[in-house]
């Protein structure tokens, strides 16, 4: 614990900013029902498109205004932080697990297994992610769970590539060779010897991936194949508010800024983590 604090206190200014924002973000997401001024589904058609407090006709009741259904924008922003975070983290985790497992297998066993996994990677790369994601959403139906799964199974490639390359180099290290020589089982070697030495990279990639996934979810929603509009995510709020961009600009600007700051802080933290923990990863995206 002491070490963590030490590292953080020595971090760059941007990383500190990122960490603070992320901490706030997580707190808001967890406490959403407590701090949100209204109920998430409070629809009040009579109050639709009320401007935020700082505009001429704005009221203090809806500090950030209301949307086209009269829902409080601040409330949706707060709940949206939660769903967006879930989408980013869970989808990232799904991708990470698939990618790390495949990367480990491919790198460790090599040969035919490696060839198969490498072709899978080639196929995934030759298949624009947005395309595959849209197809999968069309096949599975649009729901929060499906979007997370889809982002996960389209997002494993960078993990697999990175981990595979690292396993290849770690495999040649003395301690692994030694374990092999004394006849340790493969699974044991993979989990006890190799995994710990590559897990850092996976986690750093994962941090970056959270931001990527949040943005990807927003793009999918924009294209009409994302999360159903009744669920509040930041991407969803922008996508659904864009028809009102001329007369109710706050509907897109406010979640847009939230998304920007959120991803900004994730990237700051990710960059910093990478610099501190694993300079090898520079240049991997």
């Amino acid at each position: 614990m002491k070490n963590v604090w030490k590292t953080i206190s020595r971090s760059t200014r941007t990383a500190k900013f990122g960490l603070v924002v992320m901490a706030l973000w997580i707190i808001v997401a967890v406490l959403a029902p407590v701090i949100a001024p209204y109920d998430i589904n409070d629809i009040d058609i009579a109050q639709r498109l009320a401007p935020p407090a700082w505009e001429k006709k704005g009221t203090i009741e809806h500090v950030l205004g209301t949307d086209q259904l009269g829902r409080d924008v601040l409330t949706r922003l707060i709940y949206g932080s939660r769903i967006s975070l879930i989408v980013g983290i869970v989808a990232g985790a799904v991708g990470m697990v698939i990618g790390v497992v495949l990367g480990l297998i491919a790198g460790y066993f090599g040969g035919a297994v490696d060839a198969i996994i490498s072709r899978m990677i080639d196929v995934m790369l030759a298949f624009p992610f947005i395309f595959l994601a849209m197809l999968l959403v069309a096949a599975l139906g649009s729901s929060l769970g499906n979007v997370i799964i889809v982002l996960g199974i389209t997002g494993w490639v960078p993990y697999a590539r990175t981990i595979r390359a690292q396993v290849l180099s770690v495999k040649e290290k003395e301690f692994v060779k030694a374990a092999n020589a004394i006849g340790c089982r493969d699974l044991r070697i993979i989990f006890k010897q190799i995994l710990p030495s590559v897990v850092d990279s996976a986690i750093i990639l994962g941090t970056m991936d959270v931001g990527t996934n949040i943005l990807a979810e927003a793009s999918l929603t924009f294209l009409g194949l994302g999360i159903p509009p009744s669920i509040a995510t930041w991407g969803n709020m922008i996508a659904n508010g864009r028809d009102y961009i001329f007369n109710a600009g706050w509907l897109t600007t406010i979640p847009g800024i939230a998304l920007l700051i959120g991803c900004l802080s994730i990237n700051f933290v990710g960059d910093w983590l990478r610099d501190v923990r694993d300079p090898r990863l520079r240049g991997v995206d």
Binding site: I43, Q68, L69, G224, S230, D243
Partner: peptide
């Protein structure tokens, strides 16, 4: 959502 521009709003109402 795309039934017409306000389909969702009408249904929610």
């Amino acid at each position: 959502v795309d039934n017409h521009a306000k389909a969702q709003e009408v249904t929610e109402a």
